[in-house]
């Protein structure tokens, strides 16, 4: 079954499938975001809060961001593997990317919780 590819037995297939599932999730979120913007046309601060505040939208945004973290990690990891041949420099950059993505995830979580 397709989902068995997500287990640790197949790290390459797992990365491949994760990249696609998270991409699909983010694509759906982006389309819903576009439709909401076009329908609700938030222009004032109050509009914007009303736009961002519904619990389900905040949850969707959090799911989007978790997907984004995983998607960006796999993508940037592959790019760094391809273009930074020096192992030491690459390891430092990879750790910085992981750190940045965790900071962003905590950051957006706090923003969404306090909205």
């Amino acid at each position: 079954m397709l989902l068995s590819l997500l287990t640790k037995r197949y790290p390459g297939m797992r990365a491949w499938l994760t990249q696609r599932l998270t991409g699909l999730l983010m694509a759906i979120y982006s389309v819903v975001l576009l439709i909401r913007v076009l329908v609700l046309t938030p222009s004032s601060y109050d509009d914007w809060l009303a736009f961002s505040r519904p619990w389900w939208w905040r949850l969707a945004t959090l799911i989007f961001w978790v997907s984004l973290s995983s998607h960006a990690w796999l993508g940037v990891r592959d790019v760094l593997k391809d273009y930074v041949p020096n192992v030491k420099i690459r390891m430092v950059l990879l750790k910085l990317v992981v750190l940045a993505l965790w900071v962003y995830l905590v950051w957006i979580t706090l923003l969404l919780c306090n909205l």
Binding site: W48, S52, A72, G75, V79, V97, Y104, W107, L111, L115
Partner: peptide
């Protein structure tokens, strides 16, 4: 696809700062 992916990754802090300010 790669270049734009990297650009979007680098733009994340900008997006977060803008969103934080806006709310």
């Amino acid at each position: 696809h790669r270049v734009t992916g990297c650009a979007l990754f680098l733009a994340l802090p900008l997006l977060l700062v803008t969103f934080q300010l806006s709310i």
